[in-house]
Amino acid sequence: MRILLVGATGKLGTAVHQELVERKHDVVTVSRTGGDLQYDVTDPAQVADLYQTVGQVDAVASAAGSVPWRPLAELTVEDYQAAVTGKVLSQVALVKEGLSFVTGSFTLITGVLAREPVVTGAAAALANGAVEAFVRAAAIEITPLRINAVSPTVFTEALDDYGAFFPGMKPVPLADVAQAYVRSIEGRQTGQVYEL
């Protein structure tokens, strides 16, 4: 399959890229500053241009999405807007603009905070919950195209940076998260949130 991988240079994107290449897929990598192509998917115009440049693909996999981490009392309206723009609207644009270019599936990234909130994670919880709700709603409208989300807990490989935010939560290796992307891309399910 020809797969467009967005957010390809981060920890998750690198792991997903490696797994897809090992499975003999043709992967076009995208990120803001690296990869085969450089685009900022928080800008809908750049998302539209990305598809015009890449053309038809079998699948889109998103490993991109940033959110602010602050105590609830310190979060501003701008912080919430940044979370929605950085993780929700960017992925919604990948789906909306991709409907004419994708022949198979979309796989989006969400996270454990949609169902297990932590201190300083309110903006992330809001964004993750929105992505998961969007996936379920989009699945009933875009058929025969498919859409799923991957929802991991903290990555084992990121414990040094983020482990303190997830007390008592079992980490998940990036290799396992990459397998969830494979399940979404190569499988036949739609409207699913793969929790790890």
Rank of each mutant, 00 (worst) to 15 (best):
V154Y: 02
I140R: 10
V135D: 00
G191R: 02
R136T: 00
D161M: 15
P167G: 12
E157T: 14
M169I: 10
Y181T: 06
T143R: 15
A178D: 09
R146I: 08
I142D: 08
P152Y: 02
L145K: 02
A158E: 10
V172W: 02
G191A: 05
T143P: 10
R188Q: 14
G187Q: 12
L159G: 07
A164N: 12
P173I: 10
V172D: 06
Y162A: 13
R146G: 07
R136M: 06
P171S: 03
M169W: 03
T143I: 09
D160S: 11
A164T: 15
V177M: 04
A178Y: 08
R183Y: 15
R183L: 14
G191M: 02
A175P: 01
P144T: 14
R183G: 01
A178L: 04
Q192T: 14
A137H: 14
S184I: 14
Q192D: 15
R183P: 10
G163F: 01
R188N: 14
A139P: 05
A139T: 05
M169E: 08
I147F: 01
A158F: 05
P171F: 08
G168L: 02
R136K: 15
E186T: 10
V150G: 01
A178E: 03
Y181F: 12
T153M: 02
G187N: 10
A158I: 11
D161S: 15
G191N: 05
P173V: 08
P173K: 15
F155M: 11
V177Y: 07
R183S: 12
R136Q: 14
P144M: 10
L159N: 05
R188W: 15
R136N: 04
Y162K: 09
A158L: 13
S151G: 03
I147P: 01
V150T: 11
L145N: 02
V177F: 00
S184W: 07
P173H: 13
M169P: 00
P167F: 03
E157P: 00
G191K: 03
L145T: 01
I147L: 04
P144D: 11
R183W: 12
A164H: 15
G187A: 09
A164Y: 12
A139H: 08
E141G: 06
L174N: 10
E186Q: 05
V150L: 02
V182K: 07
R146H: 05
A149Q: 00
R136V: 04
G168V: 01
V182F: 12
T190Q: 12
A164L: 07
